[in-house]
Design a protein around this nucleic acid. Structure first.
Lengths: 212, 212
DNA sequence: TCTTGTGAAAACGTTCACAGCA
DNA sequence: TGCTGTGAACGTTTTCACAAGA
């Protein structure tokens, strides 16, 4: 079955919302309630959830626990993914210390940097290697996913080196630059600067009454 | 003129690419070259750029300098936006020290936190206030844009307080939670955890040959 | 000959409206 | 009666295909 990307994004939000429902002891929830809490239309919520068969009860709503378990099973990984982070600067270190970034779904097994002060040390309990050792370590540790938190200027080079020497399946790129990756590698970008530019652009547009 | 959001996002990427062209002394560039560098179809590039009139030369391509100036003028703000950051934890501090986050388009004029060790201090040269003073400071400083880097549990409350007491126009939310904002406020979310979940989901899907 | 600019077509995503069940 | 599930309608974004111009 094919599930569209915007749907997957909303599914993650539904799981989060259902966690809150569980904590507050709520047993049943309607598409309307879910939608109101997340700023999504109720019809959209129903369509998203209908992809997995009839999971709600007509006239009643969705059983919180059942829906939560169901959605979680969709996102359950076949194993704990092993991730390496390349570039341990301000942003990289912040992510390592970020609470929302802890999960049983993955484990960060190696860090890489070029700074001699970081190489050989443990940062947030994870060993930091020299980028030169990347190929060897990625293969030894069985890393399949990369988090890129290098400066923009270094990102493409480390990605080229990693993807050509290790069986990388996916990359989450925080470097503010577009990356070119082999066809078999899935790439997601988190570009803070672009999001801010878009926000400021649309604020300006609104002030001008829609004229550029 | 109306410009679609995906187009705006790509325009920012075109500007970045053109900066690289300028630095390397390249004078003319084709839609194909731009597309290849950014992983976008050439026809998409041409369509995006055609919204602003005939800016390229048929049979030749686009003049790098002219296109760069033109796109930049589209994103030029009417003034330097004043931004406040709410929540100065790991992620907030990382952003403050983030090089790609420096621009003449905006200035971060105030920080807010609840930690007594931070309140009253300067962090990266910017004064950190008590969240309790938020309403007063936002109005005095003329803040129109917020960056939310609080924990998820605090985000909705600070947003409610800020938007109800100061003329906030836009919010960039890094807290891993959906926010409900007044209709006149533009909201963009940067949700690191959701991006990682999506990536891992699609890696799993690919391994399973497309079956959930 | 080469590359842009652009209608028209296709693909994609959202919303509507109501039938179907509890 | 109330809320889900869903085909059909709608709106948006991407891609195609080719005319037009340097």
């Amino acid at each position: 079955m094919r599930i569209a990307e915007p749907t997957v994004e909303r599914l993650v939000q539904y799981i989060r919302f259902l966690e809150r429902c569980r904590e507050s002891g709520k047993r049943v929830v309607s598409s309307q309630e879910i939608g109101d809490a997340l700023g999504i239309k109720a019809s959209q919520v129903r369509k998203d959830l209908s992809y997995f068969g009839e999971i709600g009860k007509r006239g009643v709503g969705y059983n919180v626990e059942k829906l939560y378990q169901h959605l979680n099973s969709i996102f359950a990984p076949p194993k704990t993914w092993k991730i390496a982070m390349i570039g341990v600067g301000n942003l990289g270190e912040a992510l390592l210390g970020y609470k929302a970034f802890e999960s049983e779904k993955f484990r960060i097994v190696a860090l890489f940097d070029i700074d001699p002060n970081k190489i050989g040390r443990k940062i947030h309990g994870i060993h930091c290697y020299d980028v030169e050792e990347m190929s060897k370590v990625l293969n030894e540790e069985g890393v399949e996913v990369l988090i890129i938190t290098t400066p923009a200027s270094a990102a493409q080079d480390v990605v080229d080196r990693a993807t050509s020497s290790a069986p990388i399946k996916g990359i989450l790129n925080f470097a503010p630059t577009a990356l070119v990756v082999p066809e078999h590698v899935i790439l997601y970008n988190v570009d803070i600067f672009i999001e801010l530019e878009k926000l400021l652009f649309y604020i300006k547009l609104k002030e001008r009454g829609g004229n550029i």
